[in-house]
Design a protein around this nucleic acid. Structure first.
Lengths: 151, 151
DNA sequence: TATGCACCCTGTAGCCACTACAGGGTCAAG
DNA sequence: CTTGACCCTGTAGTGGCTACAGGGTGCATA
């Protein structure tokens, strides 16, 4: 199949597929006479693996390790479990951190009584960390980034 | 005060302070005879505002709007509340999304019984989305990024 | 045969919010 | 007079894509 079909089959942007090839996450496929990439089922399932892992929040480097493991069926499987477990712990830590943030934000919003900004409690609270009750630090600076849209 | 002192006073990397100046988030300060930046209290509190807002996950553009509001004490304060409320909703959405992820990951990890990777349930689950019970999509691809370290 | 259109190619630059580093200047203490 | 802490500018790198310029290919229709 050509790249457009693979893109539709896996819900992956064409540019992303070429990007994965460039960084060595997907093997370079054969080419047609017209120099078009030509993929088979092995490519499709490898890409599905990558996309699914990305959706679960694994980094490219983690996925590289996981792919190495699955490429060598004789290797010990404990490593895959360790990667996944470490990642789960990161996700849990992130949730806890965001929960602190949410509580702090909830305390801040809704304090506005519609005056002018000189009297604004929201702006005041942002300017003065001492108003805070928890150590919400290292926030989700990238909240809006890196999110794949549903396809 | 010089940039190093401002950095210590606000827990902000020196390079980050210069970056904020470059993008127009902080006003350019006066210079000493040796061309060193020289900050006053107004700079310090503006930078604290920025850092606190960043810690709460506001984007640079949101912070720009919030600073505009606080620079003009006569303006209506509702806008600040709207920005903060919208942000709170984003944080809540992110928490919900991460909770789905966590559940899915928890289902995947721990299935490993220590065999070889050919039989690995973890790798199998990553390769096949049909094993999943929820639509964990648009995951936290940037989980490890953009996080300020405590200082 | 010409033309349009969908699809493909490479290569490069941009996104966010920093962070790192090269290569230099300034200044006080020992 | 050297050491070391601090400061300066400018540029490039991070992750994981995404967008676009400028071109080629292949098939159906007028």
């Amino acid at each position: 199949m050509k790249i457009g079909e693979l893109s539709r089959a896996t819900g992956t942007n064409i540019e992303t597929i070429r990007y994965y090839e460039r960084i060595g996450l997907l093997p370079a496929p054969d080419r047609t006479a017209a120099n078009y990439r030509s993929y088979g089922d092995a490519h499709r399932s490898r890409l599905s693996f990558v996309r699914h892992s990305r959706d679960l929040g694994f980094t490219i480097e983690e996925i590289r390790s996981l792919l190495d493991l699955s490429d060598d069926p004789a290797r010990d499987c404990g490593e895959a479990d360790r990667i996944a477990t470490a990642h789960l712990e990161q996700v849990e830590a992130k949730i806890a951190q965001l929960a602190l943030l949410r509580d702090e934000l909830a305390r801040i919003v809704g304090r506005c009584r519609g005056g002018v900004s000189a009297d604004c409690r929201v702006i005041e609270a942002l300017g003065d960390h001492r108003h805070c009750e928890s150590a919400h630090q290292g926030g989700p600076a990238t909240l809006r980034q890196g999110q794949r849209q549903p396809t």
